[in-house]
Nucleic acid binder design. Structure first.
Lengths: 348, 348
DNA sequence: CTGAAAGCGCTTACAG
DNA sequence: CTGAAAGCGCTTACAG
């Protein structure tokens, strides 16, 4: 049997006062004498009072729940995003309802409607490529690239790429291959653009593998590029970096002795492989906090704005270089190289 | 400006009938003449009527939202679980609120309370090791190992391990190293137990890396075991398999020519590495569907039961062997070996 | 088959 | 500083 939780009126009865006063006291709007308010809170605690969110929602029109819409839950970055958003939302007293766009734009639209039907006060959207989410009748915070119009908050992908590029240049790399998998992705273009800018004194070439499977004999073959003198492989994602790394290793090209490999996002396996992947990570908690903050403000002011703007909309990225041997995994966000990382000085 | 959605009474006015009748018609309880019901639905559609879940929740005591509690969103299996649960829940007309236990049991308890405060009708819990979630006042479906008391549904981890063990035996492996990372995990023990049973004619040895980092020179070193004649490495998770794979490759031990490596869970990178990882996967959608189904039934019947039991509580696992070359990734759940997978015949 | 009425548990003007 | 009253939008016995 589920015991019915105590309600507002029970606290009121107990103290022989009105429910209105209890409500006012508990919401801390300050129209109640400090002393009475204290007694009310006391009784509420004793009874284990939990307000009925349903009733409050019906009355105020606000549910205290936001939606999280992702292009694809299968996205390797999803756990990081979800965790950061969930934490930030919980801290802000908000619940998070998830929705999966399952890949298609149609599904994204459905997912958004589904969330709206469930009465979310606002939503965080990591949009599918090129999607503009417009006029859905509640505030929306978009997490995308700074170069994307209508963006609310994002990491400085270009800056992150630049950091990595500088690092490789300092290690002496002069022929660097850049690898992306979607020519239309603004995030990927930003990242590689930053790398390129930092390597302007050397040679870079860019390969887009939009429809070719990496490590696929018929398509991209890292060893061929290695044979042509490329000493560093920069990919837009750790998942691709992993493909290149294992492909090279399998072919007998030792990393980082013979070639360097690096990625982005610091996915959960980046520190697990040998050698550990050098990667560029965004400060997801910061991104999430900004998105949630902007959203919450829009909700509270019941702003008309559809896509919410954040004052600080660009979060720095950090370069992560790991040593892959030793008793404990060590991380550095400085540009310090250890032996046995996935990139290294040229012919050390 | 957020336009106010139409409400029940507006449909009623439009047809000059009572709200009660509209409600009855829309909920399909059949107390309304077929003809009128049709007209009501028609008008509801025209107006784009969406029922207020808050009002319904207040009245019925049911929110139509369930909670998903995970030991750690950072868990590599999380995306698969979340996606499967979200899909199954959406199909069942339920919303999914996520909660992160952030690692500690205390946080798990808090997460559960947080969800309850938000009024979920029930929850799906993937419990932290050894945790029993008791008496929280709403139905709970637990996803764990079949060996766990109070389990609602799970995959047949032992059976999955057995499949893998048979496969390795058929390939001629006689000395197999089993690698786990938590001696207390029932799931891990089940998996390795299955492998062991299938390899009873050979030699197996088990290493628990509870507090040792794999690929850590001071701790586990796969190459040493290889030198001692072990030809196959079975890990309880693809993440560990990846560690072993890259460690061996980095040390010049070719996989699968010289040693086999396999894992569990078919994590997103399993098909990306070279050679592709052989792994054992659970049918997450099936697990999710069973969990959601049992939960939904408990909610609808307002069962007193706390932990829900499912009629069919064990889902089969499938062995996934991939060829890692060729134009498209091919998958087989039969025990067919291709060249260039992460395990192979002994000295082929 | 249809409707009038009550009520789910809050909050918010408004009055005192 | 405190309270009486109305109402958020539904659903559900109950009566006709």
């Amino acid at each position: 049997m589920q015991q019915r939780p105590p309600k507002l009126s029970e606290i009121a009865e107990r103290l022989d006062i009105s429910a209105a006063t209890v409500s006012n006291a508990l919401s801390g709007k300050g129209r109640v004498s400090a002393d009475l308010a204290r007694r009310i809170r006391q009784v509420a605690d004793d009874l284990g009072y939990v307000p009925s969110l349903s009733a409050r929602a019906l009355r105020t029109g606000l549910t205290g729940v936001i939606g999280l819409v992702l292009p694809d839950i299968g996205n390797p970055l999803f756990p990081q995003i979800a965790q950061a958003i969930e934490n930030a939302a919980t801290d802000a007293g908000l619940g998070v309802l998830i929705a999966d766009s399952r890949g298609s734009i149609k599904a994204q639209t459905e997912a958004i409607r589904h969330l709206k039907d469930h009465g979310v006060d606002g939503m965080i959207v990591v949009p599918r490529r090129g999607t503009r989410v417009a006029n859905i009748g509640c505030p929306v915070a978009m997490i995308d690239s700074p170069s994307t119009p209508g963006n609310t908050v994002s990491a400085d992908h270009w800056g992150g790429g630049f950091l990595l590029g500088e690092h490789l240049a300092a290690l002496g790399h002069r022929k660097v291959l850049l690898i992306g998998n979607n020519h239309d992705s603004i995030v990927q273009n930003d990242r590689l653009g930053g790398v390129r800018a930092a390597l302007s004194s050397g040679t870079t070439e860019t390969v887009w593998l939009d429809s070719v499977s990496l490590a696929d004999g018929a398509g991209f073959d890292a060893t061929r590029w290695y044979a042509r003198g490329f000493t560093a492989f920069v990919t837009v994602s750790d998942l691709q970096a992993l493909k290149v790394l294992t492909h090279l290793q399998d072919a007998g090209v030792s990393v980082p002795a013979m070639a360097s490999v690096s990625g982005f996002d610091d996915l959960m396996f980046a520190s697990a492989v040998t050698p550990a992947l050098t990667t560029v990570r965004m400060d997801m908690p910061a991104v999430a906090a900004i998105a949630i903050g902007a959203l919450k403000q829009a909700i509270e002011t019941r702003a008309d704005a559809d896509t919410v703007q954040a004052a600080q909309d660009r979060v720095a990225m950090t370069l992560v270089i790991r040593r892959s041997t030793g008793p404990a995994q060590q991380e550095e966000s400085e540009k310090i190289t250890f032996t046995r990382t996935s990139e290294g000085e040229l012919n050390p």
